[in-house]
Amino acid sequence: MTDIAAAPARSVGFFFALAPRGKAVFFALAATAVCLLFAFPVFWLILTSLRTGTGVYYVHRGTEFTTDNFHEVLSQEIVLRALFNSFMISTLATVLSLGVTATSGYMLSRFKGPIPNAWFSLIYIFRCVPYVAWVLPLYFVTQKLHIFDSYWGLLLPHIAVHICFFSWIMKGFFDGIDPSMEYAAMIDGCSRWGAFWRVAMPAAVPGLTALAILCWLYTWNEFLFALILTAHETPILTVVMAQFVHELGMEWHLMSATAVIALVPALIVTLFGQRYVIRGLRI
């Protein structure tokens, strides 16, 4: 544990200050406590998913375990469709959101004048408007446009949610990239679009990666929009999971099994992505 004592100069020994002698012990205890605190509900979820239908009522006692729940859940057509839909919606929403906000953030970063100012004010104000002020009418708008309960009917509102915040963050990414690279590209024969696409965008990849991971996770786990803007045609995983314990009775074991399945892609994305997220968020 010597490398704790020899922590880098910038590290802030807040915990050490509280317990100057038992540094390492205190530190290890704190780390363990944090892990337990954050892992317990997930641990409980996994445990519940391995219990039989009645076994869930004494999760903390019995010793019977089964993987039947997973078989049962994966044999339900609605769960499979929901998995597929959620995956498609999350991926498409990520790609499209990043696409439209990268251009808008780039514009905010590179230009000055009345048009960027007006656009910035617009997204700044709309960032503050709470969901409830527009989720309800959004239902009517999607019905009017005949996209209710379809991919587009859920995708486009998701993109709209991300526009304000992401444009803001993207502006920060592009502010950190020296524009002379784009000037060089324009002199080297690129149009403005070419300079943006072939030079500025590749340079923004670390930031884009971080944002893509957060966006994907957010959409994968989103509930309110999915609840209000979809019905039977386009089942979404979070809604289906909630239905196991709301409408279809108290099927805790099935809900948990589905939730554990839903956790797997998120787990993969986060474990591989956390490095990029922390690096990319350094604005």
């Binding site: 002379s180 690279m181 060089a184 590209a185 002199i187 024969g189």
Partner: peptide
């Protein structure tokens, strides 16, 4: 791009 020029920048602006 249409002026047929080349430019070296202060920070070189290499891609």
């Amino acid at each position: 791009k249409d002026r047929d020029i080349a430019m070296v920048f202060q920070n070189y602006a290499l891609y």
